[in-house]
Design a protein around this nucleic acid. Sequence first.
DNA 1: GGCTTAAGCGCAAGCGCTTGCGATTTCTCC
DNA 2: GGAGAAATCGCAAGCGCTTGCGCTTAAGCC
Lengths: 339, 339
Amino acid sequence: MRGLARLAKELGMSPGTVSRALNGRPEVSEATRERVIKAAKKLGYAPNQAARALALGATRSVGFMMDLDLETAASSEYFFMGVFDGVQSVLTQHNFDLLVLPRPTKEDSVSYLQRYVARGVFDGMILAATQRTDFRIELLQSAGIPFVTLGRSQSGSDYPWIDLDFEGVAHAAVDRFVAAGHKRIAITLPVDNINFGPIFEAAYRQALERNGIAFDPALTFRTKRSDVAGYGLVDELLATPDPPTAVLLIFETIAIGIYRRLAELGRHPGRDLAIIGFRDEPAVRSLTPSLTCFSAPLHDLGEDLASALLARIANPNDPSSPPPIRKLAALQLRSGDSG
Amino acid sequence: MRGLARLAKELGMSPGTVSRALNGRPEVSEATRERVIKAAKKLGYAPNQAARALALGATRSVGFMMDLDLETAASSEYFFMGVFDGVQSVLTQHNFDLLVLPRPTKEDSVSYLQRYVARGVFDGMILAATQRTDFRIELLQSAGIPFVTLGRSQSGSDYPWIDLDFEGVAHAAVDRFVAAGHKRIAITLPVDNINFGPIFEAAYRQALERNGIAFDPALTFRTKRSDVAGYGLVDELLATPDPPTAVLLIFETIAIGIYRRLAELGRHPGRDLAIIGFRDEPAVRSLTPSLTCFSAPLHDLGEDLASALLARIANPNDPSSPPPIRKLAALQLRSGDSG
DNA sequence: GGCTTAAGCGCAAGCGCTTGCGATTTCTCC
DNA sequence: GGAGAAATCGCAAGCGCTTGCGCTTAAGCC
């Protein structure tokens, strides 16, 4: 005999009472509750997760699906660890656990998620790196699993999401370039189907227009998230008929390669080419001249995701419940010397 | 009614038979098995994880605890995703799942792990980023949970581990430096308690000795895993009374900063300072001149970890079972122009 | 002091699955 | 064709927990 039964025997009471005491239910006296908690701590008792989940009909844990593609990885470890931290801080307050799902590169994203969904492993899911059309969203919606996405998508409808304020960044960056006198402003975009590509592009175009600058398709470049990409980009930029004098980067990482190539060419970031990067990663914090970029509130982002998800779990699909949260997390400009 | 019972009713048989058919047990005829599997697929049935775990007394899932510290992070997203991939490929063959545990920075490493252990969430654990003394190991041993570590430790005893061959790397690097005529060979080491610091250092000293070079404590430097660290390191190197002509890096990332600072000083990697980095990350693949470094077999590493763990789960603590696996994964030298 | 009322606790069902055991059916063999 | 063996399958217990229900006891009131 072990688990609850053993603890109960040890204490000379019934398993039911012990359970109630441990779960903070009002039917037990404070005296017994204290006794039980003390004994539980002494014996190192923790309720069996499987049994609890079965009885409860809920696992009190949520999954975070990263779905990273290393080739075109749109984020970084640093980014996710920051977000995880925020998520956890809210979840633990509510006695929820966070488990991360690393999709194998060989397996389809949807079928991978499906496995966990069908077996009821999680009470809710957080989806990261949402694609422009993302079937995971439809899967979760049809399965009726509460979820939140980190990033928008065109799939599904009326679901809660939180995303970085790409629009705000594009506008602020373009405005800054224009204020500095730039007219030929290039942009780099992701190569894959990640959701924010078109969003960032549209905002960039709109910002140009607002500043009375004609959009030039020749100034749009697509790159992977790597410094190599930045290295090659410089030559592409310079090969443009009327080369840009400023460039807005969707991935800050490419700045490293850009700096290196510029140095080889005897040119200087900020002087010969104005550069603003998206997101402030440690990898670029030490560039000289310092990179102008936007820093994202990672921890807050995580907290918001968790809160939104818990709200969803608390009353799923309740028509009278508040509408799903949709939020753009504002980024903070870190003014540097690069642009 | 749902789940197994519903499926059984639909098929006109008992839940027991359906379960047996789905689990590949020999007591059912092939004909019924086919019928059942087809119906299950059609209805999208998957056994409830909690119920299954409770009945089985096993969860058929393993946890991977990263325990990253962003400040001194000893690894990268790239590293882990590669390892995860290898782990998954073996686990899925055996119908095991992989869940990743991101420890919150605010929570103690041991108590975090304890939560999952006591509740029986996993059948086994993989511990990454082992510290020189790592209480997680003792926790798992006293709890009797099968586990493998990615990295050695001085804690615990007689447990299975797999680690990168730091010794081999240090020897190969030093030999290469010596062959190129270097006598003043510096080394960088991690600042924290991560297990491989002393290992790498000892191997470096031994390699020096083997080559008849006296160890000079002034040539040992401790750095974080960041390019900033590398930037600052250059000045430290040059400030040494008798400056080193070669340096072996425990973290390849610092090479980026080194290159930058050297460039500022009008010096060139490979010519004015020979550099060999540990591990071949995408971040350094494009450095010019190319960085000489060692590439780790990430996928194989993951596969080995999973295999070792599964063996451990299959017969835990069986005295007649084979001794725990201990393996050094060999790295491959990628000869570059930096040293 | 006898009554009502509430507080505190035990009993037992049930969450969805697996599996030993026994019942039934189908083969096998002489 | 009948007995024994083998192949299939249903029954029901049980995995460890939660919780509705009812019982006991203490508290409150006139």
